[in-house]
Design a protein around this nucleic acid. Sequence first.
DNA 1: CAGGATCCTGTGTGATACTG
DNA 2: CAGTATCACACAGGATCCTG
Lengths: 124, 124
Amino acid sequence: MSQRNTAVTDQFTDDCPLREVLALIGDKWSAQVLVELGEGPRRFTQLERAIEGISRRMLTVSLRNLERNGLVTRTVYPDSPPSVEYATTALVEEIREPLEALSAWARHAGPAILEARRAYDDRC
Amino acid sequence: MSQRNTAVTDQFTDDCPLREVLALIGDKWSAQVLVELGEGPRRFTQLERAIEGISRRMLTVSLRNLERNGLVTRTVYPDSPPSVEYATTALVEEIREPLEALSAWARHAGPAILEARRAYDDRC
DNA sequence: CAGGATCCTGTGTGATACTG
DNA sequence: CAGTATCACACAGGATCCTG
């Protein structure tokens, strides 16, 4: 009861900043949520359909964490049926570039990594 | 026995490249290992001392994963006592910049994130 | 539509002890 | 020094059912 949301570490006093970032978006889904929201504001079900394989529960959890850390805003429109819109905050804009650099690297380095993996597995 | 090392996903066919990167270095220690090795080649015990809180086991596991994915090389010098040197590969050079950008962001955005967290926790 | 509440499982991680 | 082996556990994540 009321145990706080600990899906993400509560501390931000780590000495390794990189680990702090990973504590924020390093889980299985948060990064993808941010990517999708980067295209523009989305509703819950839109996100659910866009992100292949995510469960309702994990989408909720991820969004809550992102919201709690100020990376995503949640806007409720009191319609019926209910309508909720999620969007990224300015904070996220500042990491869009490095994040896309990592994506690009993944695409470009993918083959080399697979090759390294094969080589390693062969030797062992 | 001989079940392959699955601390990191075996697939690199994911549709979200960002998630692939996180599958490589998104765990608790790998990023810090890379950061430390970024300073130059290190020996096992050097890493163990430099990375606060890491256990021998997790250092081994992380290094093995990084090695398997071609991000780190392992060189054994047949001395007595044994001596092993770890170093990053060229692959890692290409993500040093975006990684450092994320670190910088963590330092700079840290206060805002803490503030957002406080605000969120207050409301709930 | 947009969740919340439960239950359950895999695995990532840590503590400890042992070895070439 | 640089690991391996074993146990033990918390927790992220999935499945399912329920609600305003």
